[in-house]
């Protein structure tokens, strides 16, 4: 994959990731008879939330997919996907805070404190913030290994996101369960890989001594 084709693909992916926003915009302004239905604010909150969660899971799927089909260059797109997750979730929050609650701070604070599903959502979004802020190249360099540690937080965020979804559903939990299943598969994949490497490493230890495991740990 040449530098140039990566750049073209990145531009294409960027536009692709903007499609949900484009469609929502047309619907908000009622272009070509499109509409958000009878309850547009609720619909906006839901659609932004759903796309945010979709992008979180897509981001988490990049590494396994790369392993399984061996396309190393997929990794070059992961950051953009993660940032789009953040963008859609920020819009999710802003729709809730701005359109639904009209930036009525006491009401929002009360919701965050008293409604467990919103507490969880808020926690997830706040945890996502430092990841978005440290996604620049210079930050990656500056933080070094701590960067990777910090960005593992995305697993916790995804779990909180799915719990938030599950908890806000009135009665029909099928859809959040499907999300939970996908997330569980993605997490299991990570755990299996890690467990295998650890096992391989401990075999190495018995042969080569301790320095080896330290190296393996670092590269997981």
């Amino acid at each position: 994959m040449t530098q140039k084709s990566v750049r073209i693909l990145k531009a294409a992916l960027f536009l692709l990731c903007l499609l949900p926003l484009g469609k929502l915009t047309l619907e908000v302004f009622g272009v070509a008879g499109m509409s958000l239905g009878a309850n547009p604010i609720e619909e906006l909150i839901h659609r932004f939330g759903k796309w945010g969660l979709n992008f979180l899971l897509i981001t988490l799927a990049v590494t396994p997919v790369r392993h399984l089909i061996g396309l190393a260059w997929l990794m070059r797109f992961r950051r953009m996907l993660g940032l789009f997750a953040f963008f859609y979730l920020l819009m999710h929050f802003l729709t809730y805070a701005g359109l639904d609650q009209r930036f009525d701070i006491p009401v929002i604070v009360e919701d965050v404190v008293e409604r467990p599903y919103i507490t969880i959502g808020m926690t997830a979004l706040l945890l996502l913030l430092p990841l978005a802020l440290t996604s620049t190249n210079s930050m990656m360099r500056r933080l070094g290994r701590r960067w990777q540690k910090l960005h593992r937080m995305v697993y916790v965020i995804a779990i909180l996101g799915v719990c938030h979804f599950y908890w806000q559903v009135k009665q029909d939990i099928l859809e959040p369960l499907i999300y939970a299943l996908i997330l569980a598969l993605l997490l299991c994949y990570r755990l299996v890989v890690r467990w295998r490497r650890n096992r391989a490493a401990s075999r190495q230890i018995t042969r080569n001594g301790h320095d080896r495991i330290a190296h393996t740990r670092r590269t997981i």
Partner: peptide, 18 residues
């Protein structure tokens, strides 16, 4: 899980208050 103090009237504008 949510407040019942206010309601959103269906058909009101996107920028209308509950």
């Amino acid at each position: 899980r949510w407040s019942q103090a206010r309601e959103r009237r269906i058909g009101a504008g996107v920028f209308d208050e509950k």
